[in-house]
Design a protein around this nucleic acid. Structure first.
Length: 400
DNA sequence: AAGCAACCCAACCGCCGTTTC
DNA sequence: TGAAACGGCGGTTGGGTTGCT
């Protein structure tokens, strides 16, 4: 049974010969991308138009990239697939020189198997029931008699400890983070004009920064706006406000190290805050994420949730119009941000506990630091901002 | 060396939305 | 306005290759 476009014709099927490729290539080079149904006749091919089109798109096109997928490409596929599912054509648009067919084949033959081996459902990107159960009960080789640790530590089956999940959040120490080479990728341009922010750090702004804005982060740091964690090169800046619109800052710094097992590379995230009372109005907290940490954060936030992760996805072009993201993600209390909603009172916010549980799954053991916000609160590390109003962690929410 | 299984990937199939007549 | 043609997409197939026994 042939296609309707060629059912009346006698068509050849199967692999293309070099001669056929030559004919098709010559014809399209001479005439451009044509009406495909007329190509076989004009090019002297006994193929249907559909087959010609497919051959051109998947093989003959001059801008095709060949060879194995890079780690970066693999990460991109994973990230976009998590958002879009099996929409191969959409995914392929994020990978210049790759076709939907190529991406689909790579997924089915490689990535899918890796995920399954790591206990992850390739459809949902969630833990498979068995793996999830093991984590929750601290079962398996990773059981260190600390169930909370087992639940909070995301590690790879390819790691020596033999756990079943793809990520690890490990050493919180600065030294550990320093050993992690930053990935050689750049984030999409941030959505705000940091040039307008740096000279006026008094503006209370929610904003995001990419690696390319490390210089701006450094400037902020040098001005005493943020503690010195700019050497990791850009990241995310966040504001927090309580439900009474009181700003909050955090007098501690912490760092986290993400190990992405599938690529065997690490990412770091550092939260840095405090000292902001010296900058009245600059009420916020800075979180500097490198790309992988940002990607992990971004991709851990499920569809329909909102928060910095989703904004990162938007920035990276991963969230397209087919994904409904809900309320505006970032605003500024002074209406100054280019992506702001202008009122600084964004609703539908995801609070910090949601973030921590979504990303890290809970508390962790002594040598592994999760984003333990309860600990931070119990240590009195949060306090009111300009309004001087004390507040609990549960009152915090993202300031859009 | 032969047989077999697993894997990879190019190509096909069938459906759907859009365009054309 | 409706039918046919077309282009595009995701799922699936099957032939070639590779690795193992």
């Amino acid at each position: 049974m042939g296609h309707h476009c060629c059912s009346k014709q006698k068509v050849k099927r199967g692999l293309w010969s070099p001669e056929e490729d030559e004919k098709l290539l010559r014809y399209i080079t001479a005439h451009g991308q044509p009406c495909w149904s007329s190509v076989p006749k004009h090019a002297g091919l006994e193929r249907c138009g559909k087959s010609c089109r497919l051959r051109w798109i998947n093989y003959l096109r001059p801008d095709l990239k060949r060879g194995a997928f890079s780690e970066q490409e693999e990460r991109t596929i994973l990230d976009v697939h998590r958002i879009l599912g099996n929409r191969w054509a959409q995914i392929a648009k994020h990978l210049p020189g790759r076709t939907d067919n190529e991406v689909k084949n790579f997924w089915n033959s490689c990535i899918k198997k890796k995920l399954i081996a790591q206990g992850i459902d390739p459809k949902t990107h969630n833990l498979l029931p068995a793996a999830s159960k093991n984590l929750l009960h601290g079962a398996g080789a990773n059981n260190n008699n600390n169930p909370a640790s087992a639940a909070g530590q995301f590690q790879s089956s390819s790691n020596s400890n033999g756990s079943t999940t793809p990520f690890t959040i490990s050493s919180p120490t600065k030294a550990a983070v320093a050993t992690v080479a930053p990935p050689a990728v750049s984030m999409a341009p941030a959505l705000y004009d940091y040039n307008n922010v740096v000279p006026n750090p008094g503006a209370s702004s929610g904003m995001l920064m990419g690696h390319e804005h490390a210089a701006a982060a450094m400037q902020l740091q040098q001005q005493g706006v943020y503690p010195s964690y700019a050497d990791n090169g850009g990241g995310v800046l966040m504001n927090f406000r309580d439900q009474n619109n009181h700003a909050a800052s955090m007098s501690m710094s912490m760092s986290m190290d993400f190990m992405n097992a599938s690529s065997n590379s690490s990412s770091s995230m550092e939260l840095a805050a405090g000292g902001m009372t010296n900058n009245p109005g600059m009420e916020g907290m800075a979180a500097f994420l490198d790309d992988e940490a940002a990607a992990m954060w971004a991709t851990t936030v499920e569809e329909g949730m909102s928060g910095p992760g989703m904004l990162l996805q938007q920035q990276q072009g991963l969230v397209q119009d087919e994904v409904v993201v809900g309320p505006p993600l970032i605003g500024t209390s002074n209406g100054g941000g280019p992506v702001g909603n202008g009122n600084g009172n964004g609703k539908g916010a995801m609070d910090m506990m949601d973030v921590s549980s979504a990303v890290y799954g809970g508390a962790a053991g002594a040598t592994t630091t999760a984003f333990d916000l309860e600990l931070m609160e119990s240590c009195g590390m949060f306090y009111g901002g300009s309004a001087g109003t004390g507040m609990g962690m549960e009152q915090l929410q993202w300031d859009y």
